[in-house]
Design a binder for these strands. Structure first.
Length: 152
DNA sequence: GCCAACGTTGGC
DNA sequence: GCCAACGTTGGC
């Protein structure tokens, strides 16, 4: 089982939106980056845990935890003409994009990007890498436990 | 809104 | 396969 950090713009989909979703679960659709696609397709397993990260907002940072409900599967929104995530190059028999279902676990006080930067044990986190633009990144067990300990 | 740091596209 | 142009991400 693995740990992840998954970014979303709260204006688009926030942790409150996830908490208020039916069954407190939602499809994490719309990933259109090949590196991230590969992680969703090959590495995501049921039972994995992920930090929910708010990006492109006044206070970027980690706001909670969610659980991965299933392995990656083809992103149906890519097949939907007119959908904002539609990709005509992704075909049902040759899917280009993948998604997973995630479920709300807990929400805590923001662990801001600034706070993450101030903790040496977290300095290797991919989120701090210059120019990092992946919307999903792996988190090491050590980083995972360290961050949880900040809010427990 | 700015802009650095990417990833993608497409002509050659 | 190269690379310029373009688009996107995301912190600030």
């Amino acid at each position: 089982m693995r740990y992840w950090l998954m970014k979303s713009e709260p204006d688009c989909f926030s942790i409150s939106d996830l908490r208020k979703s039916p069954g407190r679960a939602s499809m994490w659709d719309g990933v259109r980056n090949y590196q991230v696609r590969n992680m969703l397709r090959d590495d995501f397993k049921k039972g994995d845990l992920a930090f929910f990260y708010h990006s492109s907002c006044p206070e970027p940072g980690i706001v909670g935890v969610m659980e991965v409900m299933c392995p990656g599967y083809p992103d149906p929104t890519a097949f939907m003409p007119g959908h904002e995530h539609h990709d005509p190059k992704s075909l049902p028999d040759q899917p280009r994009w993948y998604t997973v279902d995630v479920k709300f676990k807990r929400e805590f006080d923001l662990v801001s990007l600034d706070e993450i930067r101030r903790h040496p044990p977290l300095e290797e986190m991919l989120i701090l890498r210059r120019g990092n633009r992946l919307s999903i990144t792996p988190v090491t067990p050590r980083e995972w436990e360290y961050i949880l300990a900040l809010r427990s």
